[in-house]
Simulated assay, not measured.
Amino acid sequence: MVEVVDHQPAWAERFSELRAAYARALDAAGAPYRSIEHVGSTAVPGLAAKPVVDVDVVVAEAGVDGATAALAGLGLVPRGDLGVAGRYAFGVPERFRPSNTYVVVDGSLALRNHLAVRDTLRSDAALRAEYDAVKRRAAAVAADIDEYLLLKSEVLGRILARAGLSDDERAAIADTNRRIATRGAHG
């Protein structure tokens, strides 16, 4: 069963704590980064979500190793790209839970996907309400997280279309999401 709950204002506060900890570690290590983004459904006020804060540490491609080392210094465990080009996942220690943390290459389709979903849902109340309903229904019937991801795929495609991602980009994202759900390799 997948837990989806009403939006919690505390998620923004938790992201701020994570951003500050990650920024301190990156700065101390001299690891350049472009931004640290709150992504996923917890980043969208009013949207129901799994109660896990998603964080993207955005770096130039050349900065992946430095950012990975800096986060590993905090106890995060590098897990590789898990089949998502340009996105590197981490296992997080208890003090950073519940969260998913990624180092994401600036300009990558993975980052554009995360930002497009977040920004579109923040600005489109009707689409946000529809996605909220789909997430709640999917959570109620899905046997596991993989089925939950598949049940959301149609509306996610429409969100990405509204955000202006091309047919090819949306197809690539859908294919990646299907592979992740099939393998159970989500971050």
Rank of each mutant, 00 (worst) to 15 (best):
7 H>G: 02
8 Q>Y: 01
9 P>N: 00
9 P>M: 00
10 A>L: 07
12 A>P: 00
14 R>L: 09
15 F>R: 04
16 S>P: 02
19 R>S: 14
20 A>M: 09
21 A>S: 15
23 A>E: 15
28 A>I: 08
29 A>T: 11
31 A>G: 10
31 A>P: 08
38 H>D: 10
39 V>P: 09
40 G>S: 09
41 S>F: 05
44 V>M: 14
46 G>I: 01
48 A>F: 01
49 A>F: 03
55 V>C: 12
59 V>T: 15
62 A>E: 15
63 G>R: 05
64 V>M: 07
64 V>R: 09
67 A>D: 13
71 L>V: 05
77 V>N: 02
77 V>Q: 11
77 V>R: 13
77 V>H: 05
77 V>F: 02
80 G>Y: 10
83 G>R: 07
89 A>M: 11
89 A>R: 10
90 F>D: 11
95 R>F: 12
97 R>W: 08
98 P>M: 07
108 S>Y: 03
109 L>A: 00
109 L>Q: 00
110 A>V: 06
111 L>S: 00
112 R>F: 00
118 R>H: 14
120 T>D: 01
120 T>F: 03
122 R>W: 11
124 D>T: 02
125 A>T: 01
128 R>M: 08
134 V>M: 10
136 R>K: 15
142 A>N: 01
144 D>K: 02
145 I>L: 08
156 L>T: 11
160 L>Q: 06
160 L>I: 04
161 A>L: 08
162 R>L: 04
164 G>K: 05
165 L>F: 07
169 E>N: 03
169 E>F: 01
170 R>N: 07
172 A>R: 13
178 R>Y: 09
181 A>M: 03
183 R>M: 15
184 G>L: 03
